Amino acid sequence: MTQVVLSIGSNLGDRLARLQSVVDGLGGSVSAVSPVYETDPWGGVEQAAFLNAVVLAADPALDGRGWLRRAQELEQAAERVRDERWGPRTLDVDIVMCSSGGREVTSTDEELTLPHPLAHERAFVLVPWLAVDPAATLTVAGERRSVEALLAGLDPADRDGVRLTDAALS
């Protein structure tokens, strides 16, 4: 069984509907969905706030590349345009980490880097992930670390930039 942690975000159009499209598109493979958070943009590009969430899913038919294709299909269905790095987007679906048979999958391929190389620096990934998996761990620089410890190591302003909303995905 291949399991995946997906970070999803949107700051254009109907943000909540875009996030819901991921949950709907993954259907029965979804095992958990975090609460929805509003977050400040990351990466220095001036833009509107994002809605973010984390989705846990599993599918025996998909490997890391299969999950990447699925994520890109979901983005394309939401008319994602890649004009500016870290710029505004209708939908962003990032593979944070993938595991198979209980072992974390690693990849250093140009097309697919696993685990996500910046996930440990992003409160908008770590906060929702902890909400659905308090025991989550992630390999950073070859060392397996608790997501809770990674989050605690971030600047408090980054953590405060992740605000729980009343919105929910189903």
Results as ranks from 00 to 15, higher is better:
Thr2Arg: 13
Thr2Pro: 13
Leu6His: 03
Leu6Gln: 02
Ser7Pro: 11
Ile8Trp: 03
Asn11Ile: 13
Leu12Pro: 01
Leu16Pro: 01
Ala17Arg: 12
Ala17Gly: 07
Ala17Ile: 01
Leu19Ser: 12
Leu19Pro: 10
Gln20Pro: 10
Gln20Ile: 08
Val22Pro: 11
Val23His: 04
Val23Tyr: 02
Gly25Asn: 11
Gly25Lys: 14
Gly28Ser: 10
Gly28Thr: 10
Ser29Gly: 10
Ser31Leu: 12
Ser31Thr: 15
Pro35Ile: 06
Val36Ser: 07
Val36Phe: 09
Tyr37Leu: 00
Tyr37Arg: 00
Asp40Ala: 15
Gly43Asp: 02
Gly43Met: 05
Glu46Gly: 06
Gln47Gly: 06
Gln47Asp: 02
Ala48Glu: 11
Leu51Ala: 09
Ala53Gln: 07
Val55Ala: 07
Leu56Arg: 12
Ala57Pro: 11
Pro60Tyr: 05
Asp63His: 12
Gly66Asn: 03
Gly66Lys: 04
Gly66Glu: 03
Leu68Arg: 02
Arg69Val: 14
Arg70Ala: 15
Arg70Leu: 15
Ala71Ile: 01
Ala71Trp: 01
Gln72Leu: 14
Glu73Ala: 15
Glu73Asp: 15
Leu74Tyr: 04
Gln76Val: 11
Ala77Asp: 10
Ala78Phe: 09
Glu79Ala: 15
Arg80Trp: 03
Arg80Ile: 07
Val81Gln: 13
Trp86Arg: 10
Pro88Leu: 08
Pro88Asp: 03
Thr90Glu: 08
Leu91Asn: 11
Asp92Pro: 07
Asp92Trp: 05
Val93Trp: 03
Asp94Met: 06
Ile95Pro: 01
Ser99Val: 04
Ser100Gln: 13
Glu104His: 02
Val105Pro: 05
Ser107Glu: 04
Thr108Glu: 14
Thr108Arg: 13
Asp109Glu: 15
Glu110Tyr: 00
Glu111Pro: 00
Glu111Trp: 01
Leu112Ser: 08
Leu112Lys: 04
Leu114Glu: 07
Leu118Ser: 13
Ala119Leu: 06
Glu121Arg: 15
Arg122Phe: 08
Ala123Pro: 02
Leu126Gly: 11
Leu126His: 10
Val127Cys: 02
Pro128Gly: 10
Trp129Lys: 12
Ala131Phe: 05
Asp133Val: 02
Ala135Arg: 14
Thr137Trp: 00
Thr137Glu: 14
Thr139His: 07
Val140Leu: 08
Val140Asp: 02
Ala141Asn: 15
Ala141Ile: 02
Gly142Ile: 14
Gly142Ser: 10
Glu143Gln: 13
Glu143Leu: 12
Glu143Asn: 07
Val147Gln: 12
Glu148Phe: 03
Leu151Pro: 02
Ala152Glu: 15
Ala152Ser: 14
Ala152Cys: 09
Gly153Ala: 14
Gly153Met: 03
Pro156Val: 12
Asp158Ser: 14
Gly161Cys: 05
Val162Lys: 04
Arg163Phe: 01
Arg163Trp: 00
Arg163Leu: 05
Arg163Pro: 03
Leu164Ala: 14
Thr165Gly: 14
Ala167Ser: 11
Leu169Ala: 11
Leu169Gln: 08
Ser170Cys: 12
Ser170Leu: 03
